[in-house]
Design a protein around this nucleic acid. Structure first.
Lengths: 381, 381
DNA sequence: GGTGTAGGTTCAGGATCTGAACATTGGAGA
DNA sequence: TCTCCAATGTTCAGATCCTGAACCTACACC
């Protein structure tokens, strides 16, 4: 299908570029060793890619000639929508973050208001950097709900009711006049943790996002697995208790009704006042509040039931727990792990590690940045 | 890593061979179109492969020159162990079955007895074909339990207690003096259904084997997904009811205690006599026995809960239900599907089909045959 | 029987990778 | 400071491979 002589060259170019991207800086001899190509071939390919503007040869470096990715002009924007917050980051094409800010968002914001807020915040950050929209190469957008892979429309979400049925990439793209790539927030968090966080270098990972809702993302062989209709990883609506509480999705006893932040704060509202939020709940638990610790521990145990199922089905080596509730660290993860080891089959539990994410509430926006396609390579064929 | 000039030729040879294997018989022009190579390249590659003995050109065919796989000498053996049966098949390298037989096996057969029975049956079938063990190129073996991918040892299985801790491939290989490839029976059933059955041509499929126990196999991008320790797809021990019945695995309310054949026949033993078996249960249900229908329907509903979880996690487009209980067809699958559509999230349920397997109780042994590696290609480089 | 279309082969040409030879540079040691 | 060595990067001829075009062949249809 893709096997001609010229496709070989393209494949080798890609291999070289990828090796440089991973290592950051390499000499041509190292490049030859890692790619398995001969030094002669590497020499010509590097020269070509330099001429195409993809690679740069910094001969002035400490050693011989260091090959690096050519510095690209332009900026990337990452946007992460949550149930109650909005976070925007602006970064270089290398993904180094230059500016980042999070603002609270009203619970029942309409899509239009949310998009306007995002637009405003993007412009503010760009202004602070003395930059212009026209310098932005692309925008990555994360939303807490399943995106239809064909239409790009946000499916039924219990978290952002005002957004159902719209195409966020299209809507924001028109507003900003920029190419927007949209994805589920759990998928983006998984990408971020796999690129910079605790899942770095792992090829098969499950990522759990526990915030207002519960979502998951599955990385198989280094790529997000999306399933037949982009709904893979919708762990929040797994049935844990068939006779349980009614969920916003219409079923009973979904995981989300037992571990989702929206439901958890209802549990502590009576004792801790109506103004309590998920971050505050975590804060109190970490400070020693017994009730909050119990609520988070119970959530962890319920999550454990779902993760045990996931374990028996997929047998992952690593489960990363992210999202606002994961800020509770061991308070959430320890009970989760205990239940998984009790319920999952021993041979699956034995190889599993469950760890909190390393990127905290920045995972989503960093993943959004990572999801923006800005490969000089691509445009240079 | 694998990109040289000679690897291109090898890759193209492989592509051509694979195309011929899939289509059975192709003309060179068709081959050029399906592989994307030029007719000139196809011409030389086909000639090379003919000289190597991999392909055959049957110019006497109806049309022009039909390219086929060269007829290989030798035989393949497939062996499928179940809780209460043993099935052996002998086939040509093309996987055309020449002889096949199933015999009952005592419930608590030891590993040694089981392997002896298999050895005997293999010899009987070979004798009937006037063939010799030395003509056998390889043996595929299916066992109902997880195989450790590193050691090849059978992990904890509730179905074959006498087998735990042994390496079936090694043990049988020594007995037969032949190379044996072992795999989980659900994985083999999935391979068979994906190669010849209802999942033919599908790249992403979940296969459910419901017999004495409950197992599953997950095909992602055309390949069995095994997970970090080979335990992926162990659906039988997903917790359906935390306060349910005690399972042989030590937990409570595993799917297997609600839908596994071993438990189902206990339910009907009181009313239908102690001699009842799973096939008989299915037979009675198909004949109209109300009690048996109810038992099977309930099993389907419980399976539906687990499949709904699987659906929310993996979002497959197709779930194939195989194993002895699947012989009940719609009696099992309809209730299963009803529950899945109720519990799984709508966008996942909408794209899902649940169908009974097409290969019945032969799926395991056919998959075992398919799993034997006998590529002339490999030996011919 | 004639003609056309598609299949298959051959050949020259262009593209690619590789090994060997060669120039260059940085560093270790005297 | 100087010399030598080892590693790096480049160049070039050679071999391999794919492709397009021209050519031949066989079957089908008229």
């Amino acid at each position: 299908m893709a096997n001609s002589l010229s496709s070989l060259r393209e494949s080798n170019r890609r291999m070289v570029t990828e090796a440089v991207r991973k290592a950051g800086s390499l000499t041509q001899a190292q490049l030859a060793r890692t790619t398995g190509l001969s030094p002669a071939t590497v020499s010509t390919i590097v020269r070509e890619l330099r001429d195409l503007g993809v690679l740069a040869i910094s001969s002035g470096g400490g050693r011989r000639n260091a090959v690096t990715l050519a510095p690209e002009p332009g900026l990337l924007v990452g946007i992460d929508f949550g149930h109650s917050h909005l976070r925007v980051a602006v970064a270089e094409p290398t993904r180094r973050v230059l500016a980042e800010q999070a603002i609270p968002l009203d619970v029942d914001t309409s899509a239009a208001e949310g998009l306007l807020a995002a637009e405003t915040l993007v412009d503010e950050l760009l202004a602070a950097l003395r930059a212009d929209r026209q310098e932005v190469l692309g925008v990555g957008l994360g939303v807490p709900g399943p995106i239809d892979p064909l239409t790009g429309v946000l499916g039924s979400s219990t978290i952002l009711p005002g957004w159902v049925g719209i195409n966020p990439a299209l809507a924001l793209g028109e507003r900003l006049g920029l190419p927007v790539h949209v994805d589920n927030d759990a998928n983006l968090g998984a990408i971020a943790e796999a690129t910079w966080g605790v899942a770095r270098g792992r090829r098969d990972v499950a990522y759990l996002k526990v915030a207002s809702g519960v979502g998951a993302s599955i990385i198989i062989d280094g790529r997000i697995y999306r399933g037949a209709s982009g709904a893979a990883g919708e762990l929040g609506h797994i049935t844990i208790d068939e006779n349980g509480r009614l969920c916003r999705c219409g079923n009973r006893g979904c995981l989300e009704t037992l571990a989702g932040g929206l439901y958890l704060i209802e549990l502590v509202r009576a004792t801790h006042g109506p103004g309590i939020t998920v971050p505050r709940l975590v804060e109190l638990a970490l400070a020693g509040d017994v009730g909050c610790r119990r609520v988070i521990g119970d959530a962890g145990r319920h999550l454990g039931v779902a993760v045990a199922s996931l374990c028996n089905i997929l047998n992952p080596g690593l489960v990363v727990v992210g999202g606002a509730l994961a800020e509770a660290g061991a308070l959430l993860v320890d009970p989760l792990q205990e239940v998984v080891h009790r319920l999952a089959i021993p041979s699956a539990a034995a190889v599993l590690s469950v760890v909190p994410g390393a990127l905290g509430d920045r995972a989503g926006v960093l993943g959004a940045l990572a999801s923006v396609q800005v490969s000089n390579m691509e445009s240079a064929l």
